[in-house]
Design a binder for these strands. Structure first.
Lengths: 187, 187, 187, 187
DNA sequence: GATGAATGAGATTTCATTCAT
DNA sequence: TATGAATGAAATCTCATTCAT
């Protein structure tokens, strides 16, 4: 999502992501998107069959991207402690560097009944947590641990956007959250 | 919010809360509300000047209610550990018994730029956490602790609604979360 | 229209006149009127069967009042010159002292296809002008003379309300118009 | 305003002018306009952002047109007498050949607090009258003279539409009014 | 007479989507 | 591919009028 998009299709997704995450799905109109892309409404429908399809494309793209980053960050870890830290690190870095994508995910999952996409990022984390649980290394049920991790990250993101955390550096925030996360592990 | 509402105004609020929390603000129309209340659209406007006013009334009512419960639960605690547990308990019980109100709050704060109401429930908790922090009893920054608490509770709520937590009893869930929360305290 | 109105009916007419002349017919709602009178919408319908009836009552009342004043002012005159001056004087005094009534008449006649009332004030003037014309004392056709008189008075009223005439006293204005009117007479 | 309009935008203005001048602003709905143009309501909004914008476009167009004609008719005159006659002639010809435009102006200025347009036609006339007044050639204050001229023309227009003047030809009417107007000049 | 809730019709406006060019 | 006009459905809100109390 970071690279320059070349084709019109990519530009539409780029603009749509920005607008959806800023204003919401209903509040963002096809015309809004078209105008910012520099084309007309009708042209959008050359690239997507409906507004819903734009949303779903974004969901898929972002989901896949975050999933992949999480997967790799877990792979990279050499101990469970490190893997857990890597998860927190990845989530928060993603939220801080790609706030639009992160907000999109939050919006989508809060508003839509059931996501039109499989293999959510959370599942990657849950798989890791299930492993820990079976090894007896997790202080709480894996689903609860996932709630702690993903809920905390989401709320940290929101607080940071609202300026609630402006006294702390991003590094301090990340370390703080990691410290909490480590408490989920049994020693 | 639990008792039967008598007047039309109360019925409108009751129905609106249910629909807003199920479908979202934009997706819920005045006609939807009117139909469920059993009156016509125009009649709604005898009780509220706009859809926005319905939303704000609900926000105020729910905010005030949860705030009050939190406040009392903290007052009731005889030690910091107990107070923290009481907060978790109150939040989760509220979420589980008044899911519509709880979801309304989440929706509202994710979708609206700035809430049209003061004294958010979170502030009550933050005040308590700030106290702990000054006493050197908090493991992380108070705002981070708040993110952990409120984020976790919100995610627990969502998971539970989706059936992710159906293997566990509500009591098990609450105890699990309390256990995590206690880790925020320095011994 | 000047005296204190006692009954509710009179109060309704009084308020309606003020609001209609300030905001127009469509723009003034039954609720607006009721609120200023100090009763509720439903109560209005005890006194009038419809909004239209309020308008027609006012039209009749005002028409009759102005007609009567014009009639008497003509009767009072001892020469045609004086009678003509009396007409101008009456029209302008009426417009200046009862601007709401005067504006109501203008609004009504511009907006409604055909007035729901007979014996317009203009007819009293026209009868006088016809008399002059038959005596060969009128410089132009009587209908044209009526247009000059009533059109000028109306425009003077509008200009005065807009502040265009604020450099002149009401007396100066009246004398000016009389001077013009006298030119309609052949010497 | 006379030529055939080609584009939809022009057709909307044309129809709107006719309906507004016949029924008034509030009484004419977007649906009415759309129906006569032969499109749907929504289509109107591709050409104008609001009903108000249609009204303002018409006001601007008509104001500018009449202003221009007045300006040129004054320029054309070779004496003050001729210039004054030209003004009357222009106003009455405009009113008689473009009754919808003329009625629109009257309606607009009676109903709207302050016009959303500058350089009203009356200002062109007033400037001329001010010149006469400074030269000592005007029998009355220039604003009063303007009231006589514009009020008379407006009322002549209304009377003619109502059939009150049907015994006279348009030429007779124009000459009659010119004769009256000349009396405003000092000899 | 009065209240005030409710109706029902209609007004303005919005917008995803289609379609002729 | 792209344009941009148009559709058609729906949403919010308004308001004269009615009616049970």
């Amino acid at each position: 999502m970071g690279e320059k998009r070349s084709s019109t299709r990519e530009k539409i997704l780029e603009v749509a992501l920005r607008l959806f995450s800023k204003k919401g799905f209903k509040e963002t109109t096809i015309k809004d998107i078209a105008k910012e892309v520099g084309i007309t409404e009708g042209a959008i429908y050359r690239h997507f069959t409906s507004k819903e399809e734009i949303i779903n494309s974004l969901l898929e793209e972002i989901t896949q991207e975050l999933r992949q980053e999480l997967f790799e960050s877990i792979e990279r870890g050499e101990s469970d402690e490190e893997r857990l830290n890597n998860i927190i690190d990845t989530l928060l870095r993603y939220a801080f560097t790609k706030p639009e994508s992160f907000r999109f995910l939050n919006l989508y999952h809060l508003l839509k009944e059931s996501p039109q996409v499989e293999n959510l990022p959370g599942e990657v984390i849950l798989k890791f947590l299930n492993g820990l649980y079976l090894k007896g290394k997790l202080m709480v049920y894996p689903e609860v641990a996932l709630a702690v991790i993903s809920g905390t990250v989401e709320r940290i993101f929101v607080f940071r956007e609202k300026g609630v955390l402006k006294s702390y550096t991003d590094e301090e925030i990340r370390n703080s959250v990691k410290e909490v996360a480590q408490k989920l592990l049994k020693k």
